[in-house]
Design a protein around this nucleic acid. Sequence first.
RNA 1: GGGGCGGUAGCUCAGUCGGUCAGAGCAGAGGACUCAUAAUCCUUGGGUCGUGGGUUCGAGCCCCACCCGCCCUACCA
Length: 599
Amino acid sequence: MSRVLSAVAWPYANGPRHIGHVAGFGVPSDVFSRYMRMAGHDVLMVSGTDEHGTPILVTADKEGKTARELADESNRVIVEDLHGLGLSYDLFTRTTTGNHYRVVQEMFRTCLRNGYMVEQTSLSAISPSTGRTLPDRYIEGTCPICKYADARGDQCDNCGNQLDPTDLVDPRSKINGETPQFVETQHWFLDLPAVADALGEWLDGREASGTWRPNVIKFSQNILEEIRPRAMTRDIDWGIPVPGWEDQPTKRLYVWFDAVIGYLSASIEWARRLGEPEKWREWWTDAEAESFYFMGKDNIVFHSQIWPAELLAHNGAGSRGGEPGAYGVLNLPTEVVSSEFLTFGDAQFSTSRGHVIYVRDMLERYGPDPLRYFICAAGPETSDAAFTWADFVTRNNSELVAGWGNLVNRTATMVAKSFGEIPAAGPLEEVDEAVLATVRGGFESVGSLVERHRLRAAIAEAMRVVGEVNKYLTVTEPYKMKDESQRERLATVLHVALQCVSDCNTLLAPFLPHAANKVHAVLGGEGELFPMPRIEQVDELEPDSGAGLTSYPVITGDYSATPRWEPRPVVVGTPIAKPTPVFTKLDPSVVEEELARLS
RNA sequence: GGGGCGGUAGCUCAGUCGGUCAGAGCAGAGGACUCAUAAUCCUUGGGUCGUGGGUUCGAGCCCCACCCGCCCUACCA
């Protein structure tokens, strides 16, 4: 039994999330967390919505809302979507809470005191009308090299040369077309070179563990070579105030400085709401505790460089030395688990072009588990993977429905017809022992794959076991045992089959928790065997410290009753009624319907 | 431009230390069966493992070059 922190990437609150997002961080982290709880670990799974930064301001302006309003709306939608998917967060909160503000400011002060925050002046683009920092991404102009008219501030798409926004001829804001001003501005920079050696050591150690995906560790080591100080403040009026710069309300902490601290602040908030305000330390300052960070590949740099750098600076563990702050020596990530991208057909998801599938729509039309199944079985685990509606329907119909759902259905139907309850088994034959051993073996084989974040292989292995049980029924032919003289053998086979179905259901529960509870009911069980998260409206803990929240929805849950990752004997005599199908077969026409929605 | 990943049967992909590694699932074909959401079970198909070199007794797996696709390139979350 060990402490496991599941640190799940924070969805950005500038609109609803599409299925590519939850394929990257959501489903993989939940499968892992559910499994680890079943395996007996003490899991703390935290996340929340990331609500600061320029894009929210831009979107809010465009939609005629305040940033606060947009963040509130997006937060609610995202909370509902993630809850609908059954993601079992201990706490899913947000970055505009007073608790988060205070933790971030404490982190900043400690990094500053330890000497890892250095003040520098740099030339940066400002939007004259708002006074806000204009990120390079939002600046366009004519390329000074090839004269391409729509070069970006960071690079010319036409000639490929790297640019600085100040190089552009006739620069203009992509947001409103105005000409940006380039002004000298002061900011706090995180002295990344001062922690570079410590980062390198940490990464080498992680590489030696052999657990990280090769591309993640390589990429992380590569970006270490060109490490430079990085600004942690911005000229912006939406964000966390900079300690010591209270007299400069237009300067705030950079969104990424605060967002990654969310893992810590959410853990603290969870402990406070639990009434045991120090309990978070068990996951953060105990050297034995492990932490797993889940995200899409675009976030690797923030989790393998920026966040560990902040932790090292806070711990006083860089070349400038220092003392840990009030939180003590905080653990660096055990593993950065990054997914690649889920593409939609042969192109990336694109909200602006309408080339997108929202989580909400998916849940409404098909429910959570078919999507969870698809993501686990065919998701972007180690390379980009394509979602197509045709593939989705095929996976659902031929694997979920025909493979697993049908096994549940045929077994329960036979038991209901012949006995009406779970029969006692007579003497076991070799074929019975064999199938039971196969299913028992699944706990080891599936479990070790999930532990290594190999969900595609894990769910395939679970489905292979399901296939073995289907084969068992074909071989033993219980449906032919109509004579009274075969009654005992019939009872034995159906008992064994039911036991296998029950255990397969346990094997599949981390992947398909909703279905697992339905199957549990089909097998005569009551209530929710596999605990599900709930949405709860909570009061802001520190209304005076944050961004004006008074109450907000969180995802939380009590997962203490999670069943163990092991076979669980079925109870003889449990009534079994004729079942209704657990999974729904999809008509192939949904492919056409869905494609038609896009246009 | 720099860095990374990938290019294996019609489709989606496995292939850890180089030597039963040429595989799985789906689709297709044939057969069996009928308890089940026309589900299930069995059999089957042969793809010069992107291209061209090289190392080796032996290479999808190592090296070099090239072609193609994708991602990242840091104040875009």
